[in-house]
């Protein structure tokens, strides 16, 4: 009993250390990111401006352009990562990710349909879009679930992935057909959006994303123990008295909501939900009370790094964040695939 307690304590300490380092890295990256961009600004100037001593132009660049974008990058990174962590936990599938499972594309389709029927960026849209995306993503998740489910065999993890890939391909075809009729302006918007560019870079989008983040992330963290039990397997979980189906559905809804709200603001950024939980588990172990927050931090860091790279590498033109993340994430997926049995 005592050794178990000590083990817990050691694990706690290690997790706290890892998360502290991750938090520190995010702060460092934050400072690098806010320093880099089209308009050069020295670190001293940035700090001066942050504390309210900048001139009008510096204020504008920092507070209206860079700061909201950085915050959004961190938020959506965390959302995608937690979403992926939940999905991997409840489907017993190390390769699950909202992007690969086709859920991002469902959210995307809803957004694109909205954009093609209404003009871009009307006043209400930042707040409406996460809801639309949620509906689209939810319906897609339902379709994928139904198609992957087979009586007597249940839900096979690999069939889930295959069906997800197929649905994603179908939805992207539907999007191409939809976008043909758009005027060039909207078309440009959709193109950039599909590639996964953080396009909603104003404070309005931060406030649109924040409620989802504030409600769903703590909800997921509070379910960590349940997820530990669920990841033991269906039969064990039922045996331990967990209402498996209901909990799984709730968690799935949370995962879909997290992915959908991020997609509404950041576009189709894949692979974060795949890579971040794996790295997190490697750092703090598979227990969800550690893995979930660590995933959130890794995800936030990853997207922030990717966004900074995309913004600066080919300045003044911008490479969509989703592209940078895919270049980092796809090889990792392949690595996991090669190791899988």
């Amino acid at each position: 009993m005592d050794t178990v307690h000590n083990l817990d304590k050691a694990r706690n300490r290690k997790a706290a250390l890892v998360m502290g380092i991750l938090g520190l890295l995010i702060i460092v990256m934050f400072l690098i990111s806010i320093n880099s961009g089209e308009i050069r600004m020295g670190p001293a100037q940035v700090i001066k401006t942050l504390f309210g001593f900048g001139d009008a132009k510096q204020n504008l660049v920092l507070f209206d352009f860079r700061l909201p974008r950085i915050i959004i990058a961190i938020l959506i990174g965390a959302c995608f990562a937690v979403s992926g962590c939940i999905m991997q936990g409840i489907t017993h599938n190390g390769l699950a990710d909202p992007g690969i499972l086709g859920i991002n594309s469902g959210a995307g389709l809803a957004v694109v349909m909205y954009v093609s029927f209404f003009p871009v960026k009307t006043a209400a849209s930042p707040f409406l879009m996460p809801f639309l995306a949620f509906i689209g993503a939810g319906l897609t998740a339902l379709v994928i679930y139904l198609l992957a489910f087979k009586r007597h065999q249940g839900l096979s993890p690999t069939r889930l992935l295959l069906v997800g890939i197929g649905i994603a391909a179908g939805i992207s075809a539907a999007m191409i057909i939809l976008t043909i009729k758009l005027d060039p302006n909207q078309f440009q918007f959709v193109q950039v959006w599909i590639a996964g560019s953080i396009w909603g870079t104003t404070w309005k989008f931060v406030t649109a994303l924040l409620p989802w983040f504030i409600i769903l992330i703590p909800f997921a963290f509070s379910k960590a123990k349940v997820m530990n039990i669920l990841s033991l397997g269906e039969q064990t979980a039922t045996g331990l008295g967990a209402p498996v189906e209901r909990q799984r559905l709730l968690l799935l809804a949370a995962a879909v909501g997290l992915a959908a709200s991020s997609v509404a603001v950041g576009g189709g950024i894949g692979f974060v939900g795949l890579v971040a939980p794996h790295l997190a588990r490697r750092l703090v172990g598979p227990q969800h009370q550690y893995a979930l927050p660590a995933s959130a931090l890794v995800g936030g860091l990853l997207v922030l790094v990717a966004d900074t790279i995309g913004r600066t590498i080919s300045s003044p033109s911008e490479i969509a964040t989703g592209i940078v993340v895919a270049v980092i994430g796809a090889p990792y997926f392949l690595y996991l695939l090669a190791r899988s049995r």
Binding site: L95, I100, T158, L161, L162, I165, A195, G270, F271, I313, S314, S317, E318, I319, A320, G322, I323, V324, A326, V327, A330, P331, F333, L334, L337, S340
Partner: peptide
């Protein structure tokens, strides 16, 4: 077959992303 399809999807995503990045640059 399943693993090949998954690897195909990931390799396609990777090469397409690299291609898009290059074409933007």
């Amino acid at each position: 077959p399943v693993r090949l399809a998954l690897a195909g999807a990931a390799v396609s995503a990777l090469l397409t992303a690299l291609g898009e990045g290059i074409s933007i640059h």
